[in-house]
């Protein structure tokens, strides 16, 4: 089973995303900030990461840059999922190595569409 790491400081969002992604047959891991996510990736690199932008300790974009610099850090498909919904942020994320970008609020249709866009479902 493919693993998806859900990185968001909101427990509610993590729960909603978990439900949707489990229905799409992912095994879910969770992290509440970028640093926690990076630690988890170092012990097990997931196939996919659903990533929030604004988080304490380490935000999403810094996490993504750090991840892409890791050995095997280019492997996971990273889908941003954030309220930062302007072209500037989207472009910055893509340049940092994001594969897709979801603008919150999201629902099952959007997650499924975006994950299929990058060949995950």
């Amino acid at each position: 089973m493919k693993q998806c790491l859900v990185v968001d400081d909101s427990r509610v969002i993590r729960k909603v995303a978990r439900q949707i992604l489990e229905e799409l047959s992912f095994d879910i891991a969770e992290a509440g900030d970028g640093q926690e996510a990076l630690d988890q990736c170092r012990s097990r690199m997931p196939e996919a990461i659903l990533l929030d932008w604004n988080m304490p300790v380490m935000n999403g974009i810094d996490f993504l840059r750090a991840l892409r610099a890791e050995t095997n850090g280019s492997q996971p498909v990273v889908v941003f999922c954030t309220t930062e919904n302007d072209i500037t942020h989207i472009t910055e994320a893509m340049q940092a190595g994001a594969n897709e970008y979801i603008m919150k609020p999201f629902d099952r249709d959007i997650i499924e569409a975006k994950f299929s866009e990058v060949g995950l479902v």
């Binding site: 302007d86 989207i90 893509m94 897709e100 999201f106």
Partner: peptide, 19 residues
């Protein structure tokens, strides 16, 4: 925002849409 997130790859959104 909902409509542009169903089926449209993000690269094409950035390239062909103004927000």
């Amino acid at each position: 925002q909902f409509e542009v997130q169903r089926g449209l790859p993000i690269q094409l959104l950035v390239k062909y849409f103004k927000q």
